[in-house]
Design a protein around this nucleic acid. Structure first.
Lengths: 194, 194
DNA sequence: TTAATACTTGACCGATCATTCCAGTATGGC
DNA sequence: GCCATACTGGAATGATCGGTCAAGTATTAA
């Protein structure tokens, strides 16, 4: 048995994810990461690999733990579908708006910063977006069957609108749009479901 | 009279803007810029100031010359308003989709990369977004007066939806979403005007 | 107690970063 | 033709980048 690590890798990765989320990939230096994770170079490289590997692990953690992924379960709850959509989007919105650092969403940030230049990262990003779209699609399909959604509506197209809308909202929040304007805009988009 | 420059500052700035647009601020090195602008360090710093100043000038050029700004005139044409909205958005969409580099929009890119960390840049970005929103608003107000747009619709809210939608679309394009999906999604959003 | 293991630490590497500066040189006004 | 001007080209700056490595140390298994 090896000597145990003096730090908690999960907590360290969480810290790294926070920094990447806040500053982006390029603007984050290994120095930043070492400070935030409060460990030394050797331990970092031995545990997480290089900067890129660490970033990929941080993305995974974000998806499962903190970001949209963690709230995605709302969309698979039973009961009336449309209220669930509202509940989910309102939760995401307030979460993003309440962040004084305006970090937005790591997935959206990465889509903008890295996806066009790195195909594997683009795949990861679009996989997550697809996942979100599918969750909306399932729920909207149910809504259509329930009669909550008009029969001539297209659940797939609407799901894509919701995803696109979320990404756009993140851009607007990062640009400094006032919270009330963001809320009203989101509400207006949701009228498309009626 | 000084000795005339051996390069065209406008053309050089255009090149710089292209690089910033493609790679973002952080990922662009002065080396990249020097190569693209095909001039030497001395001339660059003497003519455009440091990297940050050059970027701000590149943003200005983008707004007036290449980006949304240059196509904004479509929105102030006379005649039926709603078709103009469609025409404008379709133009933007095809422009963004036809770019093999998936550069998106320099304003949106900057909103994501720099706006949360630099208040002056955030101001510049949100100013441009506001400008776009106002153009939509004016047109939609006219549409409402014309009877092209339903009386119970809110032009301000709809204008904001269109702006948010455009930003979201850029994220989706950068994430690698197929062109046909992007087109269908945009079309679905526009059903909100009916 | 000892040997093997592997985590910790910080010095160190070459590369690259943005920026400065100084010759060298071409131009315009006289 | 000559001087002042200022553009050009590239060397050089110190800082910082991501990443490596060897020495020191703590832990476990025997």
């Amino acid at each position: 048995m090896p000597r145990p690590k003096e730090f908690n890798p999960d907590e360290a990765l969480e810290k790294a994810m926070q920094v990447f989320w806040h500053k982006g990939y390029q603007a984050t230096s290994m120095e930043d990461l070492l400070t935030a994770m409060s460990l030394n170079r050797g331990s970092l490289y031995a545990t997480f690999g290089d900067k890129r590997e660490l970033f990929l692990k941080a993305m995974d953690l974000y998806c499962t733990g903190v970001g949209v992924g963690s709230r995605l379960s709302i969309l698979s709850r039973p009961g009336p579908a449309i209220p669930l959509v509202h509940q989910f989007l309102e939760g995401m919105l307030e979460f993003a708006l309440s962040d004084p650092q305006r970090r937005g969403c790591l997935i959206a940030n990465t889509a903008m910063e890295l996806a066009p230049h790195q195909t594997d990262i683009a795949k990861k990003v679009s996989g997550r977006l697809q996942h979100l779209e599918d969750a909306f699609f399932k729920l909207l399909t149910r809504a259509k069957q329930n009669g909550e959604l008009d029969k001539n509506k297209n659940p797939r197209a609407l799901a894509r609108v919701l995803v696109t809308m979320m990404q756009g909202t993140i851009v607007m929040i990062k640009a400094g749009t006032p919270a009330e304007v963001v809320r009203q805009t989101a509400e207006t988009v949701l009228s498309i479901l009626k």
